[in-house]
């Protein structure tokens, strides 16, 4: 049986639904030494801000059971270098590019989105309104429905590419934020970002991360992410890119059944540098074994 892994995200065609998640894959160069990036559905690059950012003090990553906490703090080389050094290289790898965009102000977000769209180097924008590790921006835009809607409306005015809004799980009802993003003009939603957590180092008797709190990711958060994808899929009729602890092809199938159209893989890349292509192969095997011809056949079947 031949299975069709392609996904049509509102006109943007992906060869499969698996993409590395923002922040876990840099701009693709490092993992391209392990495999060809054209085996991926797309690449979601590291959050890009108007000015370069150094991020938070170290330690800024630590392991917890079944997951990890990170408080990188949006370290990135800044828009100018991303446009001149990173994206032109990535474009040559023959894989669609989602540029994850973060900012401190509405104007920041709009400037970055505008320039990325004009560069012609990206196929979609993922608006990061859910970084838990920075004071300004990020999460400040992602936890209040009217603030989020206002931001998405402004970005929409300059955004000529498909606009995905990446939602935070650190809210009471994620569906409300999903509805706000949709009414602001989003073309799709990606969820979830990390959950705010903390670990105490027993030797120093202080938080293990210099930032004290960090974002929890990895297999430990998968049930939360599946639940949230399910809840959003029931209320909003937009393509959903699901993520949170995906480590296998079966995990992808679970997200698709909960209503996701495509998925992002984050922490699993650290455990296994070949995680993404392995997951694509596993998904294919799963579909063959289950007699599933294409992803649409199971998309949202659990709803």
């Amino acid at each position: 049986m031949t299975v069709d892994l392609t996904v049509d995200l509102g006109g943007l065609k992906l060869r499969n639904p698996v993409m590395p998640a923002s922040g876990c894959f840099g701009f693709g160069r490092e993992y391209s030494e392990y495999y060809s990036l054209d085996t991926l559905g797309a690449v979601v690059v590291k959050a890009t801000t108007l000015k370069p950012r150094l991020g938070n003090p170290t330690p800024r990553v630590t392991e917890v059971t079944g997951g990890m906490l990170n408080a990188i703090g949006l370290a990135n080389p800044g828009l100018s270098k991303v446009l001149t050094e990173e994206l032109p290289w990535l474009e040559r790898q023959n894989v669609p590019i989602f540029v994850n965009v973060a900012g401190d102000t509405v104007e920041d977000y709009c400037s970055v989105v505008d320039e990325v769209c004009r560069s012609g180097l990206a196929q979609a924008i993922e608006l990061n309104v859910s970084c838990p590790n920075v004071e300004l921006g990020g999460l400040a835009f992602g936890v209040n429905s009217s603030v989020l809607r206002g931001l998405v409306e402004e970005v929409r005015k300059v955004c000529t590419l498909p606009l995905y809004v990446k939602l935070s799980p650190n809210v009471t009802r994620i569906q409300d934020l999903a509805v706000a993003a949709a009414s602001g003009g989003a073309d799709g939603l990606s969820l979830i970002n990390t959950l705010v957590g903390m670990q105490i180092d027993l030797a120093t008797r202080k938080p293990a991360l210099a930032n004290k709190t960090g974002g929890l990711s990895g297999p430990a958060i998968k049930p939360v992410a599946v639940r949230m994808v399910y809840e959003v899929a029931r209320e909003v009729n937009l393509p959903i890119v699901g993520m949170g602890g995906i480590c296998s092809g079966r995990d992808v199938a679970e997200f698709i059944m909960a209503g996701a159209w495509a998925v992002e893989v984050g922490t699993a890349n650290f455990t296994d540098p070949y995680a993404c292509p392995r997951i694509v192969a596993e998904l294919k095997s799963f579909m063959e074994a289950e007699g599933i011809k294409n992803l649409e056949e199971i998309r949202g079947c659990a709803l």
Binding site: G26, E30, L54, V61, T62, N70, I72, A75, F270
Partner: peptide
């Protein structure tokens, strides 16, 4: 402390 070990995650700067 490192996550990816290959330069992708910027955890160990």
């Amino acid at each position: 402390r490192m996550a990816c070990g290959v330069g992708a995650c910027w955890g160990c700067t």
